[in-house]
């Protein structure tokens, strides 16, 4: 552009305002909070994995260590903690199953399987597996 003779319109460079997200953004909406809770379940699932590893270690260290570990697990605090873990694991599983239809589109001929049916199948399979494991453990 021939800038010498170009119009000298009063130039204004816009300065955009960029609001940043507050650290507490996830408290703004119930749906955000539920999401963060779902993400938080990972911490509890990881904690349970560590407990399992510790259990295996105690088993490998022989009778005395095993008894101590069992005693630790039976403390009220530990039981409460396991209650938390169970609640989060159930929440995690349920959210996982309810989200399944977003990724999975099942077509039968020209019809798409409705989301509710997909969720029901998942939950039924989950309940079935859980019942089987419970049966194995309880009948042993």
């Amino acid at each position: 552009m021939d800038t010498e003779t170009a119009p000298t319109y009063k130039r204004f460079r816009p300065s955009a305002y960029h609001p940043s997200m507050a650290l507490t953004w996830w408290m703004k909406k119930p749906s955000y909070l539920l999401y963060i809770l779902r993400e938080l379940t990972a911490v509890f699932v990881a904690a349970y994995a560590i407990i399992l590893l510790l259990t295996v270690r105690a088993l490998s260290q022989g009778g005395e260590a095993w008894d101590t570990w069992l005693a630790t697990l039976q403390r009220p605090g530990m039981i409460l903690f396991h209650g938390f873990i169970l609640a989060f694991a159930v929440y995690h599983s349920l959210t996982w199953f309810t989200l399944a239809p977003t990724a999975l589109v099942v077509r039968i001929k020209d019809k798409v399987l409705p989301a509710s049916a997909l969720i029901a199948v998942h939950v039924a399979a989950w309940v079935g597996c859980s019942a089987f494991i419970a049966w194995v453990l309880l009948s042993a």
Binding site: A6, P7, Y9, K10, F12, R13, P14
Partner: peptide, 8 residues
């Protein structure tokens, strides 16, 4: 429109 500048 973003800047109010006239362009040739």
């Amino acid at each position: 429109m973003a800047t109010g500048r006239l362009h040739t």
